[in-house]
């Protein structure tokens, strides 16, 4: 084993998110000690408050950009990272909090907080890639820990991660799950959703919720036409496409086509401005 101080460094960063994707790293119970033996975990505040300064060989970034402060902080993370990998639906597509992109500025804050004037947040939730260059995007809500290990391992050995971009359907077929869409007429987003979860929901009789976002080629309009023909109302279809990956372009466009509200700003990243730091 190499001297610990010579190992590649790994950092984990949190932006607007629920922490579930970071937790996937700690969920790697069988592999965690092995991982800790091949990388130096230099910054992972969910695991330890002990941190060391960058630069970092690999940064995992969870969460979306929702505050003026984070607009700046992600630039700092980028500058400190040789390889920046975004993990989860928030970081790759804006997450469930991307629903704010469809509401008038401040509407949610005014509903929730007694004094919304103390809230310093942006009108939009945007993916990390809207702000800085990203080396690899790992999708999912939450991400799959086996895929996470694969991405980390590939990064350490300098190879391309084996992360497919095809539909959930292929995973259903590989595990022998009978198609719910065809046999039960269940509304299922599997044909347009990226695989990675192991096709969990169809295996227990639930249609795919689209947690991993659009597949490489997602013909959402054709699937929507079939689901409508099978009896799913347009408004339900709009909701179906508008969950954790509501602002992923293919899902966003389809939810609008099915009558959902259009984004107030069409998801444009805000221009970083000075003097708005929230901390």
């Amino acid at each position: 084993m190499s001297n610990h101080n010579e190992l590649p460094t790994l950092a984990v960063w949190k932006f607007a998110s629920c922490d579930g994707c970071q937790l996937s790293l700690l969920d790697c119970e069988d592999e965690l000690l092995t991982l800790a033996g091949v990388v130096r975990i230099s910054h992972f505040t969910e695991m330890s408050r002990a941190t060391t300064a960058g630069p970092y060989d690999v940064s995992l970034v969870e969460g979306s950009i929702t505050t003026p402060a984070d607009v700046h902080r992600i630039q700092e993370v980028r500058e400190a990272s040789r390889r920046l990998i975004t993990i989860g639906a928030c970081a790759t597509a804006g997450g469930i909090q991307g629903l704010r992109n469809f509401a008038a500025s401040g509407a949610y804050a005014a509903t929730v907080y007694a004094h919304p004037e103390y809230i310093a947040s942006l009108d939009t939730s945007t993916p990390i890639s809207a702000h800085v260059d990203v080396d690899f995007e790992l999708h999912g809500c939450p991400i799959d820990r086996h895929q996470l290990l694969e991405v980390i391992t590939a990064s350490l050995s300098g190879r391309r991660p084996v992360i497919p971009g095809h539909s959930v359907c292929q995973e259903c077929k590989a595990r022998g799950t009978v198609c719910l869409l065809v046999s039960q007429k269940t509304a299922c987003l599997g044909p347009v959703t990226r695989t990675g979860c192991g096709a969990l929901c169809p295996a227990v009789g639930r249609g795919c919720f689209g947690c991993f976002g659009p597949a490489d080629t997602a013909n959402t309009s054709s699937l929507a036409a079939t689901l409508r023909h099978q009896g799913t109302p347009a408004i339900e279809l709009s909701h179906l496409f508008r969950t954790f990956n509501a602002c992923a372009p293919a899902f966003l466009e389809e939810s609008v086509s099915q009558g959902g509200p259009v984004p107030v700003t069409r998801g444009r990243p805000p221009t970083p401005t000075s003097g708005e730091e929230g901390r």
Binding site: H166, C169, K173, V192, N219, L223
Partner: peptide, 13 residues
């Protein structure tokens, strides 16, 4: 192709 989902179901069944 307008209708095809490119989901791969046909090839896997």
């Amino acid at each position: 192709a307008q209708r095809c989902l490119a989901c791969g179901n046909c090839t896997l069944v």
